[in-house]
């Protein structure tokens, strides 16, 4: 720490090296320990608005039984998504961010009491529709899943690389629409691999059920993996 003398005051150099995410990361670490202690698999679903997160979840929740699933759903305004998902008969908590473009670990923590963690195998967090801001905020999840729909264009991974880099799995949604669009499937897959070599990709349609079995099996395998660590 160097100090220079001035007139009646001194200038000092301070080494700080503190990360802007540290407050969020501390809460996320606490959440992660809690989930691990209970053997709960936590998935953080991230996509642009309108890519079909909620529709996919409706189908997912119906078919994941007997696994016990709960959902935390983030939106800038309204309870609409929570109302849709509650009809699937699982506990759902809505996080209204009132303007914030992403979920933060503290928001997850403060809504956790609304789901019964003692009776839970999987917690799905549906993030605010946004491909940029949510990617850097750790919510204590095991895995991030990024959704990209066939209607969004093949270059999404190149335009929003951070989330494709960080996510474990990419779900290509609305796969049933592909034949009706100028959608270049190979190009999308190439772009995903360019950003995240080796990334797992599943193509699904909530409308026709195409590929859903693979997605459900993927979740079941991750649950089994998580619960095998929890003895």
């Amino acid at each position: 720490m160097c100090e220079t003398q001035g007139e009646g005051h001194q200038h000092r150099h301070l080494e700080v090296h503190r990360h802007a995410m540290e407050a969020n990361d501390q809460v996320a670490a606490r959440l992660r320990r809690g989930f691990a202690a209970r053997g709960i698999l936590v998935l953080n679903l991230i996509s642009a608005p309108g890519s079909g997160k909620t529709a996919l979840l409706e189908r997912t929740l119906e078919q994941l039984r007997p696994l016990r699933v709960s959902v935390l759903v983030g939106d800038v305004e309204t309870e609409r998504d929570a109302e849709r998902l509650r009809r699937c008969g699982v506990p759902v908590a809505q996080i209204v961010t009132a303007g914030t473009c992403h979920l933060e670990a503290g928001m997850v923590e403060s809504h956790l009491a609304e789901v019964d963690q003692r009776e839970l195998d999987v917690l799905i967090v549906e993030n605010v529709g946004n491909l940029v801001c949510p990617s850097g905020f750790d919510l204590g999840e095991d895995l991030k899943v990024v959704l990209v729909s066939t209607t969004e264009g093949e270059d999404k991974p190149l335009k929003y690389p951070a989330i494709f880099h960080r996510a474990e799995l990419a779900l290509v949604t609305k796969a049933d629409l592909a034949p009706h669009l100028d959608f270049d499937r190979e190009e999308l897959l190439r772009n995903i691999q360019a950003v995240h070599p080796g990334m797992e990709v599943l193509e699904v349609s909530a409308k026709t059920g195409l590929g859903l079995d693979l997605w459900l099996d993927w979740i079941r395998a991750k649950v089994e993996e998580k619960q095998s660590l929890h003895v």
Binding site: G6, G8, H9, Q10, H11, R12, H13, L14, E15, V16, H17, R18, H19, A20, M21
Partner: peptide, 14 residues
């Protein structure tokens, strides 16, 4: 992969 406050210059009164 970090956004961090590295170091700073401050003024302290004697």
């Amino acid at each position: 992969d970090r956004l961090e406050v590295r170091d700073m210059e401050v003024r302290t009164d004697d």
